[in-house]
């Protein structure tokens, strides 16, 4: 008892914080342990185990799952594609969101309505959005084919999701469509922090519109932009539903990313161990992204 009291006396804040906060942070800790740490632990453990397709475990096999994965002929193209996918979706999202946010920041009649409208693709379930696009693009009955035929833009029906390159381009387009609202809102929030007085002052100093944007608005937007980019990187990298609903990664494996490949290895090729090692590598890549995110946040704090 006496020892405890002296500890409280020397480090009062810390000690009291630990004991007192536990009931409050307990549920959060429990959720993190049960829903994040335990599954991650199981995933990593599984990647070192030999589990057959019936779900029976045959014990540890060392690195053999990783060896199988590295010999998988689809791995390298899929990794390359995942990089293209993530970078291009995030790039186009930001490029489109910047002007859109600028428009929504300006005052015009009906702005509130336009702002609400932009939330719709964000609020709608991604599976729902992707399913709509799947049917819009359908090669036999799709409405896009109908419109383009009527306008005389095409002579024959086009299988928009037929060839690997074309369907991958459509996937990127849909992913950008789904990511733009969130990004726009983050940038919009950033824009509201840009003080009116600075803008007025620069106008008085004779700065043109573009100069004001380049030298004042854009630099002040950097924190918002970085955060939205990192969150988007993580989201897009892990994105499963758009690809799965629209192409199931096909034809073949030609529109798969690492996430859909991991799913296919389990549920199509019935190789749970190899899939777990794919998921573990995915997890490692995401950890790098998160480390980046933390660094970015701290950079903002110090600023």
């Amino acid at each position: 008892m006496s020892v405890a009291t002296s500890a409280v006396a020397t480090k009062p804040l810390r000690k009291r914080f630990n004991a007192g906060a536990l009931p409050w942070i307990g549920p959060a800790i429990a959720v993190i342990v049960l829903m994040v740490l335990y599954p991650a632990y199981t995933m990593i453990k599984t990647s070192f185990m030999n589990i057959d397709e019936t779900g029976t475990s045959h014990g540890f096999t060392g690195l053999s799952n990783y060896r199988t994965l590295f010999h998988n002929p689809n791995l390298v193209p899929v990794l390359e594609r995942t990089l293209i996918w993530t970078v291009s979706v995030v790039f186009f999202t930001v490029i489109i969101s910047l002007p859109v946010a600028q428009v929504l920041h300006a005052k015009f009649p009906g702005r509130r309505l336009v702002r609400y409208a932009l939330i719709v693709p964000w609020a709608a379930s991604v599976v729902m959005t992707s399913t709509s696009w799947l049917w819009i693009l359908n090669g036999y009955y799709g409405v896009l084919n109908r419109i383009m035929l009527s306008l005389g833009l095409i002579k024959d029906q086009v299988q928009f999701l037929g060839s690997p390159t074309q369907s991958f381009a459509w996937l990127i387009l849909v992913a950008v469509f789904v990511s733009v609202p969130f990004t726009t809102y983050v940038i919009l929030a950033g824009l509201t922090t840009v003080g009116e007085d600075i803008m007025e002052a620069s106008t008085v100093d004779g700065a043109s519109g573009w100069q004001r944007y380049k030298h004042i608005t854009f630099p002040l937007l950097r924190p918002a932009l970085l955060i939205s980019m990192v969150i988007n990187l993580i989201n897009v990298f892990n994105s499963f539903p758009i690809i799965w609903v629209m192409t199931t990664g096909g034809p073949g494996y030609s529109t798969d990313t690492t996430t859909t490949l991991a799913y296919k290895i389990t549920f199509r090729s019935a190789d749970i161990g190899q899939s777990a090692s794919m998921a573990t590598i995915n997890f490692a890549i995401i950890l790098v992204f998160i480390a980046l995110f933390l660094k970015v946040s701290r950079w903002k704090e110090n600023d």
Partner: peptide
């Protein structure tokens, strides 16, 4: 079962 899954994914190409 595993080979069937691979055929289903790949043979169309």
């Amino acid at each position: 079962n595993a080979v069937k899954g691979q055929i289903q994914q790949g043979i169309g190409q």
